[in-house]
Nucleic acid binder design. Structure first.
Ligand SMILES: [Mn+2]
Ligand SMILES: [Mn+2]
Ligand SMILES: [Zn+2]
Ligand SMILES: [Zn+2]
Lengths: 152, 152
DNA sequence: GCTTTTGATGCAACATTGTAGCATTAGATT
DNA sequence: AATCTAATGCTACAATGTTGCATCAAAAGC
Protein backbone atom coordinates (compact mmCIF):
# COMPACT_ATOMS: atom_id res chain seq x y z
CA UNK A 1 0.00 0.00 0.00
CA UNK A 2 1.41 3.42 -0.95
CA UNK A 3 2.05 5.77 2.00
CA UNK A 4 -0.21 8.76 2.75
CA UNK A 5 -3.29 6.95 1.47
CA UNK A 6 -6.49 6.98 3.48
CA UNK A 7 -6.80 3.32 4.37
CA UNK A 8 -9.91 2.62 6.42
CA UNK A 9 -12.80 1.93 4.04
CA UNK A 10 -10.58 0.69 1.26
CA UNK A 11 -8.95 -1.87 3.50
CA UNK A 12 -12.23 -3.28 4.74
CA UNK A 13 -13.40 -3.65 1.16
CA UNK A 14 -10.16 -5.29 0.13
CA UNK A 15 -10.28 -7.66 3.05
CA UNK A 16 -13.88 -8.49 2.38
CA UNK A 17 -13.06 -9.47 -1.18
CA UNK A 18 -9.99 -11.47 -0.26
CA UNK A 19 -11.84 -13.26 2.51
CA UNK A 20 -14.21 -14.58 -0.12
CA UNK A 21 -11.37 -15.83 -2.29
CA UNK A 22 -11.77 -13.22 -5.01
CA UNK A 23 -9.18 -11.01 -6.64
CA UNK A 24 -9.00 -7.50 -5.31
CA UNK A 25 -9.65 -5.23 -8.27
CA UNK A 26 -10.30 -1.50 -8.52
CA UNK A 27 -13.81 -2.11 -9.75
CA UNK A 28 -14.83 -4.42 -6.93
CA UNK A 29 -13.32 -2.22 -4.27
CA UNK A 30 -15.02 0.88 -5.66
CA UNK A 31 -18.38 -0.86 -5.98
CA UNK A 32 -18.30 -2.09 -2.40
CA UNK A 33 -17.34 1.35 -1.15
CA UNK A 34 -20.10 2.97 -3.15
CA UNK A 35 -22.63 0.58 -1.67
CA UNK A 36 -21.25 1.07 1.83
CA UNK A 37 -21.49 4.84 1.58
CA UNK A 38 -25.04 4.85 0.23
CA UNK A 39 -28.03 5.00 2.53
CA UNK A 40 -30.27 3.45 -0.10
CA UNK A 41 -29.92 0.67 -2.66
CA UNK A 42 -28.19 1.71 -5.88
CA UNK A 43 -28.95 0.78 -9.45
CA UNK A 44 -26.30 -0.49 -11.84
CA UNK A 45 -26.40 2.88 -13.53
CA UNK A 46 -25.93 4.86 -10.35
CA UNK A 47 -22.98 2.71 -9.37
CA UNK A 48 -21.49 3.19 -12.82
CA UNK A 49 -21.79 6.95 -12.43
CA UNK A 50 -19.98 6.75 -9.10
CA UNK A 51 -17.12 4.82 -10.69
CA UNK A 52 -16.87 7.39 -13.46
CA UNK A 53 -16.78 10.12 -10.83
CA UNK A 54 -13.93 8.35 -9.08
CA UNK A 55 -12.03 8.17 -12.33
CA UNK A 56 -12.25 4.41 -12.44
CA UNK A 57 -12.60 3.24 -15.97
CA UNK A 58 -15.03 0.39 -16.38
CA UNK A 59 -17.27 -1.44 -18.76
CA UNK A 60 -20.99 -2.11 -18.40
CA UNK A 61 -20.41 -5.84 -18.52
CA UNK A 62 -17.62 -5.78 -15.98
CA UNK A 63 -19.86 -3.91 -13.60
CA UNK A 64 -22.68 -6.39 -14.08
CA UNK A 65 -20.29 -9.22 -13.39
CA UNK A 66 -18.79 -7.55 -10.35
CA UNK A 67 -22.27 -7.10 -8.93
CA UNK A 68 -23.23 -10.68 -9.74
CA UNK A 69 -20.17 -11.88 -7.88
CA UNK A 70 -20.91 -9.74 -4.83
CA UNK A 71 -24.42 -11.18 -4.69
CA UNK A 72 -23.18 -14.75 -5.15
CA UNK A 73 -20.79 -14.24 -2.27
CA UNK A 74 -23.47 -12.78 -0.06
CA UNK A 75 -21.58 -9.51 0.22
CA UNK A 76 -24.39 -7.60 -1.47
CA UNK A 77 -28.02 -8.33 -2.18
CA UNK A 78 -30.25 -7.60 -5.11
CA UNK A 79 -33.60 -5.86 -4.79
CA UNK A 80 -36.36 -5.88 -7.39
CA UNK A 81 -39.50 -3.93 -6.71
CA UNK A 82 -38.90 -0.45 -8.04
CA UNK A 83 -38.76 0.01 -11.77
CA UNK A 84 -37.27 -2.38 -14.30
CA UNK A 85 -33.70 -2.30 -13.03
CA UNK A 86 -32.22 -4.22 -10.15
CA UNK A 87 -30.89 -2.33 -7.20
CA UNK A 88 -28.07 -3.42 -4.95
CA UNK A 89 -27.22 -2.86 -1.33
CA UNK A 90 -24.46 -4.04 0.93
CA UNK A 91 -25.28 -6.71 3.48
CA UNK A 92 -24.58 -5.34 6.93
CA UNK A 93 -23.46 -7.49 9.80
CA UNK A 94 -26.40 -8.44 11.99
CA UNK A 95 -28.46 -8.41 8.88
CA UNK A 96 -32.15 -9.03 8.94
CA UNK A 97 -34.01 -8.73 5.67
CA UNK A 98 -35.99 -5.54 5.73
CA UNK A 99 -38.77 -4.09 3.62
CA UNK A 100 -38.28 -1.34 1.05
CA UNK A 101 -40.33 1.62 0.00
CA UNK A 102 -40.56 2.63 -3.62
CA UNK A 103 -41.63 6.23 -4.19
CA UNK A 104 -43.65 6.46 -7.37
CA UNK A 105 -42.96 10.17 -7.64
CA UNK A 106 -39.20 10.52 -7.24
CA UNK A 107 -38.35 6.91 -8.03
CA UNK A 108 -36.24 6.51 -4.89
CA UNK A 109 -36.00 3.28 -3.01
CA UNK A 110 -35.86 3.74 0.75
CA UNK A 111 -34.72 1.05 3.17
CA UNK A 112 -37.21 0.46 5.93
CA UNK A 113 -34.68 -0.97 8.34
CA UNK A 114 -37.24 -1.37 11.08
CA UNK A 115 -39.80 -3.19 8.99
CA UNK A 116 -38.87 -6.86 8.66
CA UNK A 117 -39.70 -8.74 5.48
CA UNK A 118 -40.78 -11.93 7.15
CA UNK A 119 -42.07 -14.99 5.34
CA UNK A 120 -45.51 -16.08 6.49
CA UNK A 121 -46.56 -19.71 6.82
CA UNK A 122 -47.07 -21.26 3.42
CA UNK A 123 -48.90 -24.28 2.05
CA UNK A 124 -47.03 -27.56 2.56
CA UNK A 125 -44.17 -28.22 0.21
CA UNK A 126 -43.14 -24.63 -0.38
CA UNK A 127 -39.59 -23.83 0.65
CA UNK A 128 -38.97 -20.13 1.08
CA UNK A 129 -35.44 -18.89 0.51
CA UNK A 130 -36.17 -15.22 1.02
CA UNK A 131 -39.01 -12.73 1.26
CA UNK A 132 -39.28 -9.41 -0.52
CA UNK A 133 -41.67 -6.80 0.75
CA UNK A 134 -41.97 -3.61 -1.25
CA UNK A 135 -44.36 -0.80 -0.44
CA UNK A 136 -45.27 1.58 -3.24
CA UNK A 137 -46.53 5.11 -2.79
CA UNK A 138 -45.22 8.58 -2.00
CA UNK A 139 -42.23 9.05 0.25
CA UNK A 140 -42.08 11.58 3.08
CA UNK A 141 -40.34 14.22 0.97
CA UNK A 142 -42.63 13.88 -2.02
CA UNK A 143 -45.77 13.62 0.09
CA UNK A 144 -44.97 16.89 1.84
CA UNK A 145 -44.18 18.70 -1.41
CA UNK A 146 -47.26 17.85 -3.38
CA UNK A 147 -50.49 16.97 -1.65
CA UNK A 148 -52.26 19.53 -3.86
CA UNK A 149 -51.18 19.80 -7.50
CA UNK A 150 -48.08 18.08 -8.78
CA UNK A 151 -44.65 19.46 -7.92
CA UNK A 152 -44.42 22.35 -5.52
CA UNK B 1 -73.50 -11.95 -31.83
CA UNK B 2 -73.47 -14.84 -34.30
CA UNK B 3 -75.73 -17.79 -33.39
CA UNK B 4 -74.33 -21.06 -31.99
CA UNK B 5 -71.47 -19.27 -30.27
CA UNK B 6 -70.59 -20.10 -26.71
CA UNK B 7 -71.38 -16.85 -25.00
CA UNK B 8 -70.60 -16.96 -21.29
CA UNK B 9 -66.98 -15.93 -20.78
CA UNK B 10 -66.83 -13.82 -23.91
CA UNK B 11 -69.84 -11.84 -22.88
CA UNK B 12 -68.49 -11.10 -19.44
CA UNK B 13 -65.26 -9.87 -20.98
CA UNK B 14 -67.12 -7.71 -23.49
CA UNK B 15 -69.35 -6.30 -20.81
CA UNK B 16 -66.39 -5.62 -18.57
CA UNK B 17 -64.68 -3.64 -21.29
CA UNK B 18 -67.78 -1.72 -22.26
CA UNK B 19 -68.57 -0.92 -18.64
CA UNK B 20 -65.25 0.87 -18.46
CA UNK B 21 -65.96 2.91 -21.57
CA UNK B 22 -63.50 1.11 -23.82
CA UNK B 23 -63.96 -0.31 -27.25
CA UNK B 24 -64.54 -4.02 -27.41
CA UNK B 25 -61.76 -5.43 -29.56
CA UNK B 26 -60.64 -8.98 -30.23
CA UNK B 27 -57.36 -8.37 -28.48
CA UNK B 28 -58.85 -7.02 -25.27
CA UNK B 29 -61.46 -9.74 -25.09
CA UNK B 30 -58.90 -12.46 -25.65
CA UNK B 31 -56.49 -11.02 -23.10
CA UNK B 32 -59.15 -10.82 -20.42
CA UNK B 33 -60.25 -14.36 -21.13
CA UNK B 34 -56.68 -15.63 -21.00
CA UNK B 35 -56.19 -13.98 -17.64
CA UNK B 36 -59.52 -15.27 -16.35
CA UNK B 37 -58.70 -18.82 -17.35
CA UNK B 38 -55.24 -18.80 -15.80
CA UNK B 39 -54.66 -19.84 -12.22
CA UNK B 40 -51.44 -17.84 -12.06
CA UNK B 41 -50.28 -14.46 -13.32
CA UNK B 42 -49.18 -14.40 -16.95
CA UNK B 43 -46.32 -12.59 -18.61
CA UNK B 44 -46.76 -10.48 -21.71
CA UNK B 45 -45.10 -13.25 -23.67
CA UNK B 46 -47.36 -15.98 -22.36
CA UNK B 47 -50.42 -13.92 -23.19
CA UNK B 48 -49.05 -13.30 -26.66
CA UNK B 49 -48.63 -17.03 -27.18
CA UNK B 50 -52.22 -17.58 -26.12
CA UNK B 51 -53.45 -15.05 -28.65
CA UNK B 52 -51.40 -16.70 -31.36
CA UNK B 53 -52.90 -20.04 -30.35
CA UNK B 54 -56.37 -18.57 -30.67
CA UNK B 55 -55.55 -17.32 -34.16
CA UNK B 56 -55.82 -13.70 -33.09
CA UNK B 57 -53.31 -11.62 -34.94
CA UNK B 58 -51.64 -9.02 -32.81
CA UNK B 59 -48.65 -6.82 -32.40
CA UNK B 60 -46.30 -6.62 -29.42
CA UNK B 61 -47.09 -2.97 -28.93
CA UNK B 62 -50.83 -3.48 -29.14
CA UNK B 63 -50.62 -6.13 -26.47
CA UNK B 64 -48.58 -3.89 -24.19
CA UNK B 65 -51.11 -1.14 -24.64
CA UNK B 66 -54.05 -3.43 -24.05
CA UNK B 67 -52.47 -4.58 -20.80
CA UNK B 68 -51.70 -1.02 -19.76
CA UNK B 69 -55.30 -0.12 -20.30
CA UNK B 70 -56.58 -3.06 -18.28
CA UNK B 71 -54.33 -2.05 -15.41
CA UNK B 72 -55.36 1.62 -15.62
CA UNK B 73 -58.99 0.55 -15.48
CA UNK B 74 -58.39 -1.68 -12.50
CA UNK B 75 -59.51 -4.73 -14.47
CA UNK B 76 -56.08 -6.34 -14.16
CA UNK B 77 -53.07 -5.78 -11.97
CA UNK B 78 -49.38 -5.87 -12.60
CA UNK B 79 -46.98 -7.96 -10.53
CA UNK B 80 -43.21 -7.50 -10.39
CA UNK B 81 -41.16 -9.87 -8.30
CA UNK B 82 -40.28 -12.77 -10.51
CA UNK B 83 -37.80 -12.18 -13.29
CA UNK B 84 -37.41 -9.07 -15.37
CA UNK B 85 -40.85 -9.12 -16.97
CA UNK B 86 -44.11 -7.92 -15.54
CA UNK B 87 -46.86 -10.41 -14.95
CA UNK B 88 -50.55 -9.73 -15.08
CA UNK B 89 -53.56 -11.17 -13.35
CA UNK B 90 -57.24 -10.40 -13.41
CA UNK B 91 -58.71 -8.62 -10.44
CA UNK B 92 -61.41 -10.77 -8.95
CA UNK B 93 -64.43 -9.40 -7.19
CA UNK B 94 -63.92 -9.33 -3.43
CA UNK B 95 -60.30 -8.69 -4.12
CA UNK B 96 -57.74 -8.41 -1.41
CA UNK B 97 -54.13 -8.01 -2.42
CA UNK B 98 -52.36 -11.28 -1.85
CA UNK B 99 -48.75 -12.41 -1.74
CA UNK B 100 -47.05 -14.32 -4.54
CA UNK B 101 -44.54 -17.09 -4.62
CA UNK B 102 -41.77 -17.12 -7.19
CA UNK B 103 -40.20 -20.52 -7.79
CA UNK B 104 -36.55 -20.11 -8.64
CA UNK B 105 -36.45 -23.52 -10.27
CA UNK B 106 -39.37 -23.57 -12.65
CA UNK B 107 -39.88 -19.81 -12.83
CA UNK B 108 -43.58 -20.06 -12.04
CA UNK B 109 -45.40 -17.43 -10.07
CA UNK B 110 -48.02 -18.86 -7.73
CA UNK B 111 -50.80 -16.80 -6.17
CA UNK B 112 -50.96 -17.23 -2.42
CA UNK B 113 -54.61 -16.22 -2.15
CA UNK B 114 -54.68 -16.82 1.58
CA UNK B 115 -51.59 -14.77 2.38
CA UNK B 116 -52.46 -11.07 2.47
CA UNK B 117 -49.89 -8.51 1.36
CA UNK B 118 -50.60 -5.99 4.08
CA UNK B 119 -48.74 -2.72 4.55
CA UNK B 120 -47.14 -2.35 7.97
CA UNK B 121 -46.98 0.92 9.86
CA UNK B 122 -44.44 3.24 8.33
CA UNK B 123 -42.50 6.31 9.44
CA UNK B 124 -44.54 9.52 9.39
CA UNK B 125 -45.03 11.08 5.98
CA UNK B 126 -45.03 7.91 3.94
CA UNK B 127 -48.23 7.25 2.01
CA UNK B 128 -48.57 3.66 0.89
CA UNK B 129 -50.60 3.01 -2.24
CA UNK B 130 -50.03 -0.72 -2.36
CA UNK B 131 -47.90 -3.48 -0.92
CA UNK B 132 -46.13 -6.23 -2.81
CA UNK B 133 -45.01 -9.33 -1.00
CA UNK B 134 -43.07 -11.91 -2.99
CA UNK B 135 -41.59 -15.07 -1.53
CA UNK B 136 -38.77 -16.71 -3.44
CA UNK B 137 -37.76 -20.33 -3.19
CA UNK B 138 -38.86 -23.72 -4.47
CA UNK B 139 -42.50 -24.48 -5.10
CA UNK B 140 -44.25 -27.64 -3.94
CA UNK B 141 -43.77 -29.42 -7.27
CA UNK B 142 -40.10 -28.55 -7.63
CA UNK B 143 -39.30 -29.17 -3.99
CA UNK B 144 -40.71 -32.68 -4.19
CA UNK B 145 -38.85 -33.48 -7.40
CA UNK B 146 -35.37 -32.44 -6.38
CA UNK B 147 -34.31 -32.35 -2.76
CA UNK B 148 -31.21 -34.35 -3.63
CA UNK B 149 -29.40 -33.53 -6.88
CA UNK B 150 -30.96 -31.24 -9.45
CA UNK B 151 -33.84 -32.49 -11.55
CA UNK B 152 -35.27 -35.91 -10.75
C1' DG C 1 12.18 -9.76 -8.78
C1' DC C 2 10.58 -12.68 -12.66
C1' DT C 3 7.53 -16.09 -14.48
C1' DT C 4 3.39 -18.55 -14.52
C1' DT C 5 -1.43 -19.27 -13.88
C1' DT C 6 -6.00 -18.16 -14.38
C1' DG C 7 -9.61 -14.95 -12.57
C1' DA C 8 -11.21 -10.64 -14.14
C1' DT C 9 -11.65 -7.32 -17.65
C1' DG C 10 -12.98 -4.95 -22.10
C1' DC C 11 -15.01 -5.15 -26.39
C1' DA C 12 -18.39 -6.48 -29.85
C1' DA C 13 -22.43 -8.56 -30.76
C1' DC C 14 -26.79 -10.02 -29.25
C1' DA C 15 -31.29 -10.87 -26.42
C1' DT C 16 -35.21 -9.31 -23.85
C1' DT C 17 -38.49 -6.12 -22.33
C1' DG C 18 -40.75 -2.08 -22.95
C1' DT C 19 -41.91 2.96 -25.44
C1' DA C 20 -42.81 6.75 -28.86
C1' DG C 21 -44.57 8.60 -33.27
C1' DC C 22 -47.63 8.25 -36.81
C1' DA C 23 -50.44 6.53 -40.62
C1' DT C 24 -54.30 3.31 -41.00
C1' DT C 25 -58.16 0.53 -39.39
C1' DA C 26 -62.33 -0.44 -37.35
C1' DG C 27 -65.75 0.13 -33.07
C1' DA C 28 -69.24 2.98 -31.76
C1' DT C 29 -72.53 6.54 -32.66
C1' DT C 30 -75.59 9.40 -35.54
C1' DA D 1 -74.17 4.69 -44.79
C1' DA D 2 -71.36 8.33 -43.10
C1' DT D 3 -68.75 10.06 -39.30
C1' DC D 4 -65.67 10.34 -35.43
C1' DT D 5 -61.89 8.85 -32.99
C1' DA D 6 -60.09 5.00 -30.01
C1' DA D 7 -57.27 1.30 -30.97
C1' DT D 8 -54.15 -1.00 -33.94
C1' DG D 9 -49.89 -2.14 -36.53
C1' DC D 10 -45.56 -0.56 -38.23
C1' DT D 11 -41.06 1.22 -37.64
C1' DA D 12 -37.70 2.87 -34.94
C1' DC D 13 -35.75 3.39 -30.56
C1' DA D 14 -34.47 3.03 -25.40
C1' DA D 15 -33.19 0.53 -21.32
C1' DT D 16 -31.44 -3.39 -19.15
C1' DG D 17 -28.98 -7.36 -19.14
C1' DT D 18 -26.13 -11.58 -21.33
C1' DT D 19 -22.66 -14.39 -24.15
C1' DG D 20 -18.19 -15.37 -26.34
C1' DC D 21 -13.66 -14.52 -26.69
C1' DA D 22 -9.17 -12.28 -26.79
C1' DT D 23 -6.37 -9.70 -23.52
C1' DC D 24 -4.75 -8.16 -19.06
C1' DA D 25 -3.20 -8.26 -14.47
C1' DA D 26 -3.69 -10.16 -9.40
C1' DA D 27 -1.99 -13.66 -6.81
C1' DA D 28 0.97 -17.55 -6.32
C1' DG D 29 5.29 -20.07 -7.23
C1' DC D 30 9.92 -19.90 -8.01
MN1 LIG E 1 -32.41 -1.99 2.05
MN1 LIG F 1 -52.01 -13.37 -7.71
ZN1 LIG G 1 -40.25 10.42 -3.28
ZN1 LIG H 1 -41.34 -24.66 -9.20
Amino acid sequence: MPPHEHPAATDSARELIAAHGGRVTRTRVAVIEALQRSAHPLSHDEIGATLDGAGIGHDRVTLYRALDWLVEQGIAQRIAGGERAWRFEIRRDGDHRHAHFHCERCGQIVCLEDVPAAAPTLPAGFAVARAELVLHGACADCGRAGVEGKEG
